[in-house]
């Protein structure tokens, strides 16, 4: 395996956080992890913290095409997937591809879309293809959906049910930037326009090769598979949790850990990789017992992690 691939992705993060996305290293890294392990990311935070900027900058830096959907309650599935229109000129029907036919698709405020539209999107995320009027269209590879939702707003929204949350590999927050960085942002204003100037930092072929490498060339040892198993089974036996991490969730943890190892330029997974991704990958899949709303899923999972011994030898 060419470990330089990992270095290139690390460089993307370094350059973007240095120039355009100060203090956004963590969500940026998670987004890249989702991309490398063929999953999708849900960013859950209030508006105005740079979710769109992040998606845009990432698409630019990776040299990938970018589409955006702003969800509203009257958004139709075809608004995402595309629709067939009659071309008078040719006297035939023609499929006009929707924004889903981009490498990176930003779905803003996904919880504002009605369930029908949500499920069409989730189907596309899962299948990596779209069927319209009996014709199946493959989506471009790589395909990364960056969905955002505002957890504070409840009126007129259709929150994603837990079963649908499972489709996202990673859920993360944005978080406010550090005081110093925020002051700088206040002083120099939004950098929205600068993003268009970001040059491509990595070849598309490198990205496809990297995705392939993550699944084939990064080794996950038996001991660590057992470690992941012990984590997910601990979530299933925890008193405050109704539904723990599913088998798909466990697979996703393994994938994300592999991607993390790849980013670090290693050809094998370390326990640290697993610990680094497990909250981002696992927390949103937990269904807590009612009456335990006060408990934060992330801290619950972190607490569990600190009780599970790592295989050290």
């Amino acid at each position: 395996m060419n470990s330089n691939h990992g270095a290139e992705f690390r460089r993307i993060i370094a350059e973007l956080t240095a120039s355009h996305l100060p203090g956004k290293g963590k969500p940026l890294r998670l987004a890249l992890l989702a991309l490398l392990s063929g999953g999708h990311i849900l960013i859950e935070d209030i508006p105005g913290l740079g979710k769109t900027t992040l998606a845009l900058a990432l698409a630019k830096a990776l040299g990938l095409s970018f589409g955006r959907v702003q969800c509203t309650s009257d958004l139709l599935p075809s608004d995402i997937t595309g629709l067939t229109i009659f071309d008078r000129h040719d006297n035939s029907f023609r499929f006009v591809k929707g924004p889903a036919f981009n490498n990176i698709l930003l779905v803003d405020e996904i919880n504002r879309a009605m369930p029908k539209t949500q499920s069409a999107l989730l189907e596309a995320m899962e299948e990596h293809r779209i069927t319209a009027d009996g014709v199946t269209y493959d989506l471009p590879e790589p395909f990364l959906v960056i969905a955002t939702q505002n957890p504070a707003e409840q009126v007129g929204t259709y929150p994603l049910p837990e079963s649908q949350m499972d489709r996202f590999l990673i859920r993360t927050g944005m978080g406010y930037p550090d005081a110093e960085i925020e002051k700088k942002i206040i002083r120099y204003g939004s950098i929205h326009d600068d993003i268009r100037q970001i040059g491509t930092l990595v070849e598309q072929s490198t990205i496809t090769a990297a995705i392939k490498n993550v699944t084939t060339a990064v080794y996950l040892s038996e001991k660590l598979a057992d470690y992941i198993y012990r984590i997910v089974s601990a979530t299933r036996n925890e008193r405050d949790i109704i539904t723990g991490i599913s088998t798909r969730g466990a697979i996703n943890i393994a994938q994300a850990a592999k991607a993390n190892a790849f980013m670090e330029g290693r050809d094998h997974v370390l326990p640290e990789d697993i610990k680094e991704v497990v909250v981002a990958v696992g927390a949103h899949r937990l269904l807590l017992r009612s009456g335990t709303d006060a408990i934060d899923k992330e801290s619950l999972l972190n607490g569990l992690l600190s009780t599970i011994p790592i295989p050290l030898s």
Binding site: L270, L305, S306, I308, I310
Partner: peptide
Amino acid sequence: DLSPTTGLHK
């Protein structure tokens, strides 16, 4: 002290 729940690199 080596903690049983912390990786060596960490």
